[in-house]
Design a protein around this nucleic acid. Structure first.
Lengths: 175, 175
DNA sequence: CTCAATGTAAAACGATCACTTTACTTGTGC
DNA sequence: GCACAAGTAAAGTGATCGTTTTACATTGAG
């Protein structure tokens, strides 16, 4: 595997499992099996590394939603994501909060991700109902966000609750 | 103001605004205007301080929901909370994640808070509909959790979206 | 008047922080 | 066969981490 990919993957796991600030560069370089010199040649700084990690995670997350054209598939994909990656809350919001909103690269990565997620949900709602519905998309975004965070303490069944609530909202809007 | 109260209030603000790990004890003692010796006499360690902060925040948060007997009042209180305290995501989940789930006192404070929140929502749903409805309470918990986190990047209007979605779910369950 | 409690300031603790530097080993392409 | 790019290990940068310690001031109760 490419050294840069290995670095970014390792960083994502450590940041996600132990937190950004709590993860030291020593632990990172040892886990990735590279020297600190190489790390800094590649990513420049710890903050830049975080921003890169977030961008890469966004790409992977959006790809996992790429084929969904219904809320069933949306929450299905979300359930698979949690099963694969674990559920420890949204890494974008956690990173934003851990850095106090003070790191522009991180703020922008978070905002980009949330805008894309919101856009994707809008498309799914339109595919399912046949029309644009901002309010419905907003509601389902809330359910996705809620499931993401409640799953950390209520487990994966939360995704099913979110799906059923989304279905009721859609059926209500249709009827 | 009592020295211990001042310490806990200051810690809550700093942890919330800048993150737990990123907040050093020096900054904390200077902001609270106390010596580090006194701080450690009172709370023992940084982790214990965090647990105490969370318990105190839970008390204050639950008190702000104490009089609500409808979802309108529930989300009304939530909106007031965000207006007063700002919206940077759930401090309990953020603290749990920042400490990697490795600090028992923090894990327990988070779980206590979430159990109480879920219980409070169950009561509000019962007051509003006249009957117990676990599924409906689960859905509204998701909307509360979703609003809490989406408010960080979509602003306070998110609370209104959550309220309207909750109303539709309740009306659907009633009819 | 004095003892004990409660506070302060400030230095010291070893560890660790993010990051840089020095010195050396590898291929790879021309 | 040699220069160059890309990696390593390891020491060093000064700063800061959470926590403890030393030495001293204030204050209220008996």
């Amino acid at each position: 595997m490419d050294i840069r990919t290995r670095l970014i993957d390792t960083a994502e796991q450590l940041f996600d499992r132990h937190g950004f600030t709590a993860t030291g560069m020593d632990r990172l370089t040892h886990s990735a099996g590279i020297s600190s010199r190489t790390l800094y040649k590649h990513v420049g700084s710890k903050n830049r590394l975080l921003a890169i990690v977030l961008d890469e995670r966004d790409r992977r997350f959006m790809r996992s939603l790429a084929s969904a054209v219904s809320v069933d598939e949306l929450f299905g994909a979300l359930g698979v994501w949690f099963a694969d990656q674990g559920a420890r809350g949204c890494l974008f919001l956690r990173s934003w909060a851990e850095t106090g909103g003070d790191v522009p690269e991180v703020v922008e990565a978070m905002e980009r991700h949330k805008a894309r997620l919101r856009q994707r949900i809008e498309e799914i709602v339109e595919a399912e109902t046949g029309r644009r519905d901002d309010e419905l998309a907003d509601s389902i975004l809330l359910l996705v966000e809620g499931a993401t965070h409640a799953a950390t303490y209520r487990g994966r069944a939360t995704v099913d609750v979110a799906l059923r609530a989304a279905r009721r909202l859609i059926d209500g809007a249709r009827g």
